Amino acid sequence: MTLVELKQLLDQTGYPVTYSHFSSAPSVPYICYLFIDSENFFADNTVFVEGMNIDIELYTSKKDLAAEKKVKDILIANGITFEQNEVYINEEKLFKNTFEVELR
């Protein structure tokens, strides 16, 4: 799956979606996604399968289980496994739920 295909999936949430960051943040909830590093399978000096570790960040003003479920349901429906973590960004007064995924 490419980053373009991932964006198309995330657009299905109905929330604003962008790579890395918005120049000015829209109203919450919104989603940013970002390439973290590669996860390639290789042998004999050849890359057989390219992979990417991607963070999908869902920003909300409160704990929003419905918004989290939208993201989870799209990932699960498309066979994308994920790990999830959450932090509260006090300076921004926002929750950030990060879904760590690996794309191949």
Rank of each mutant, 00 (worst) to 15 (best):
L75H: 12
M52Q: 11
I56C: 06
K69C: 07
G51T: 01
K63P: 02
K69H: 11
F42K: 06
N40I: 02
L58P: 08
K69E: 13
F42M: 09
K72I: 13
T46P: 05
D37T: 07
L75V: 07
F41K: 09
A67M: 04
K62Y: 09
N45C: 08
A67R: 04
S38F: 12
A66E: 15
A66K: 15
T60I: 00
D37Y: 06
S61K: 12
F42Y: 14
D37I: 01
L58D: 03
F41T: 11
D64Y: 08
E57P: 00
V47Q: 03
F42V: 02
F48P: 00
A66S: 14
M52T: 00
K70A: 08
I74E: 07
L65W: 13
S38H: 13
K62S: 10
N40L: 05
E39A: 13
I56Q: 03
K72P: 01
F42D: 14
I54F: 12
F41H: 06
L75P: 14
S38A: 09
F48D: 05
L65Y: 14
N45A: 14
T60G: 06
D64R: 02
V47D: 08
Y59F: 15
D44K: 12
A66H: 08
E39S: 15
E68R: 14
F41A: 09
T60S: 15
D64Q: 04
I54C: 10
V71P: 13
D37H: 07
I54R: 00
E57A: 10
D73I: 01
F48Q: 07
D55P: 03
L75C: 12
I56P: 12
N40Q: 07
D44A: 12
A67S: 14
V71L: 05
D73P: 04
Y59W: 15
E68A: 10
T60D: 02
E57F: 02
L58M: 03
L58Q: 05
T60L: 01
N53C: 02
V49M: 12
F42P: 00
A67L: 02
K70Q: 13
L65N: 10
A43G: 06
E39N: 12
T46H: 15
I54Y: 09
A43E: 13
L65M: 11
N53Y: 13
